[in-house]
Design a protein around this nucleic acid. Sequence first.
DNA 1: GCACGGGCATGCAACGTTGCAAACTGGGGG
DNA 2: CCCCCAGTTTGCAACGTTGCATGCCCGTGC
Lengths: 331, 331
Amino acid sequence: MVRLSDVAVHAGVSVRTVSNVVNDFRHVAPHTRARVQASIDELGYRPNMAARNLRRGRTGLLALVVPEIDSPYFSDLAARTVRIAEDEGWTVLIDQTDGDPARERRLLHGERSQLVDGVIFSPWSVPAQELASRSDATPIVLLGEHDGAPPVDHVVIDNVRAAEEAVGHLVARGRTAIAAIGVRPTLGNATAHQRLLGHRRALATAGMEPRSDREAPVGSLHRAEGHRAMTELLDSLEPPDAVFCFSDQLALGALRAVVDAGLRVPRDVAVVGFDDIEDGRYAVPRLTTVSPDRDQIARLALQVLRDRLAGDDTPARVHTAGHRLVVRESS
Amino acid sequence: MVRLSDVAVHAGVSVRTVSNVVNDFRHVAPHTRARVQASIDELGYRPNMAARNLRRGRTGLLALVVPEIDSPYFSDLAARTVRIAEDEGWTVLIDQTDGDPARERRLLHGERSQLVDGVIFSPWSVPAQELASRSDATPIVLLGEHDGAPPVDHVVIDNVRAAEEAVGHLVARGRTAIAAIGVRPTLGNATAHQRLLGHRRALATAGMEPRSDREAPVGSLHRAEGHRAMTELLDSLEPPDAVFCFSDQLALGALRAVVDAGLRVPRDVAVVGFDDIEDGRYAVPRLTTVSPDRDQIARLALQVLRDRLAGDDTPARVHTAGHRLVVRESS
DNA sequence: GCACGGGCATGCAACGTTGCAAACTGGGGG
DNA sequence: CCCCCAGTTTGCAACGTTGCATGCCCGTGC
């Protein structure tokens, strides 16, 4: 390992001067800078991050905690976050909870606290009240709503309104038996609840009765669950002619279930998803969906952390990112 | 921030003893351990990773460098790697190159070298010879083959054989005009070349002539390119009746192109992909594909790094993971 | 000619931890 | 009764870096 002192000896300057060159300190004479830089290059010096972090009290790392990195929505979000964070000089560490409450809890309460400067947390099963009782001092920002507005910064989209728009679109298309897939029994996850609320509101606006047998719960947001739920809906006495799914993954599973039942989309059943994942754009038929502004979500989350790290101690706020309904072939 | 010394004062022992408790050192009296642990819990002590890393000379971090985290293949691989690495006490940092040669180069030559203990690198555009000239001492393991067998550890699958099996399957299905999509002009990426080789071999075995107008190059491995390439193939004078795509993403794009052309899969054109991403399992029709054993890939890569960090300095080797052809509806 | 100031270079100390080796304890054997 | 040893605890130093404060040098202005 090459240290600053090695470079200093090689260049015939002090350790401090080498450090000044490495850190682009202003007051370094051009020829000194050039000489030191030459030594750095020749010796192949790399700053020791551990030492730098220790001295600076910052690591330059952020944790992005998601239920699963291999779900399209989160991998897309992760990719954007990594890119945007990099532009601001941060490196992102991705943590996967698999929805495991124990793991979420550990990460929430500071498992990474001395390793990262801040945490972007997408909770799955940890209840809101527990978020509030967090004692760790590392700045954190939550993705997604949580009931009871815990005193933690949030980045959200307007899920109620988005769901309302999606279902309103189905109504406008003349659908009369509109089901929802994606209801979550877990209280912790308010996102599903908000979307259900929007769904019901749109039905109410259209003068339709919400029917609990058309609000299908799921165990996960994966395709398989969408497939299963849709199959059950189609097997019911009064099958729906449209379905609003709380994720594109569910929608793609549902799409497949419609095909498996010998029906056509959108002729027999219209399908709308949520998330705007790439698969939906290439599905047959192309999936109508709600597209959250992920870049804005990532940017807002990073901005919150940046502000908090800069000493901003105003009360926690909720930051709302945009969304839009993208109508394609499936509805 | 709570330090070891704070805990030491609180528990009435030396700093070193607290450290011994934190690190599960054997020779600590049970009652001492209990008392120290109580202080740790009460004060909410968290080890300072920067200091620990500096002292130990290890960070416990690994970098996983992939072209893009939001492509299904890599996000799936990343998810598995993170899980398996965690079991071994490692934390994985995911780096995204976007296929940018400059960024690949930086990461290859040690941009992260003082931050991570090892690197799992999935190169995209950096040529093999440059891999060989790597001077950085951080252990590295490459995913995917590279011509010229540079002196770096590799984890691969037998791409030639896998491609041969895939195309052989199309031959067995009675297809006579079999195209390939995914040829890469870049010399660096030998994977595409290997798959093309397997494709040609299978054709030769079946007594068919390889035709360069049925070997479609692509600019990326995304759906859009698969769509474009397939559209062009279908527009040719003698359109193929089957296509082997070098990735599932390409295959899904191709699938869509067939539908857009008013044709049916597999009746008019059979489609086979490569990677076994989840979307393929739910596509309409379900995609036939080559499924690499990703868990084995991740495990092999981690094992290589573990061995190298333990001081193994035997010559670099090539480690081959398994694969299998999964026949579904698209062929 | 001298004082001053801005640009530049440096020495010292400290960040929080762990490796090392030494020091202490109590119990059993000589 | 003393010594030895295993078990336990401790002090010291060092990991490589950067903040702070200081000192040096040279050019400018009086």
